[in-house]
Nucleic acid binder design. Sequence first.
DNA 1: ATACTTGCTTCGTGTAACTCGAAGTCAATA
DNA 2: TATTGACTTCGAGTTACACGAAGCAAGTAT
Lengths: 134, 134
Amino acid sequence: MTYTVKEFAEMFHATEHTVRYYTDIGLLPCQRDGGNHRLFDESAVNWMRGITYLKSCGMPIKEIKRYFDLCQMEESEENLLARYKIIARQREAAHQKAAEAKATADYMDHKCRHYEEILAGRIPDDTNPANWSD
Amino acid sequence: MTYTVKEFAEMFHATEHTVRYYTDIGLLPCQRDGGNHRLFDESAVNWMRGITYLKSCGMPIKEIKRYFDLCQMEESEENLLARYKIIARQREAAHQKAAEAKATADYMDHKCRHYEEILAGRIPDDTNPANWSD
DNA sequence: ATACTTGCTTCGTGTAACTCGAAGTCAATA
DNA sequence: TATTGACTTCGAGTTACACGAAGCAAGTAT
């Protein structure tokens, strides 16, 4: 089973532009059909899943590419360790991002309730940028 | 109490470049001292706190600016509601981001353990981009 | 007094990761 | 035959900075 650019983009909630961009910079492998159109197979789907996870850790595209290049090299203890280090580092980054995102969400809950109190007329409107201490 | 660009940047783990950039585009207010150097007061600190929260929701800078402009306008029911809508929307965004970040962190934990199994020699090295299904 | 260092200033270019639109190709359909 | 739709490449635009050059002003060391 293969996918066209459009189908592939939809699978990952990405734009076709982005998918083409990834193939152009060599981040995402693809075949071409008779009409020179990009075709993606299951392995490309798996690559792309990995890309989205690593991107979500905040990893720059160039580094993601380096990681995938490592994955395609001949196996060796050294290579394996290098890959592990990258993943471990990104795991850390992911946890930090998650904690930060949680804190932001909590804060926004609080801020939202504050607005609702004002709208209900229970407290006066003190909304001013200088009041972000709330 | 006022702060220089450097002090202010450090407070928010931002670069001096970024702080200057924010003042230049009118997102962050500041005074100037005799030597034309930027000076930030407590209210700027609060503004900046708000900016970092909203940015962390994924809100573009231009929209953040529009929100802060609303905060400085004359109060009215309409204005208040407009502001509330913005905040409520960003609250949603923040929760979505938090959930996604959590999922990524969990996945990275899993991936990390997978690597540790390989390194311990308990399972063979199948690490290949096409195996991101793991 | 002179030189150096520190910290700021503006200005202009560079970067990442897209994002958009123009212009063209090709196959299927009305 | 004409148009539609999906694809192609290419080049320019966007966001949110990052960086470096060149210059000023105050304080410190020699």
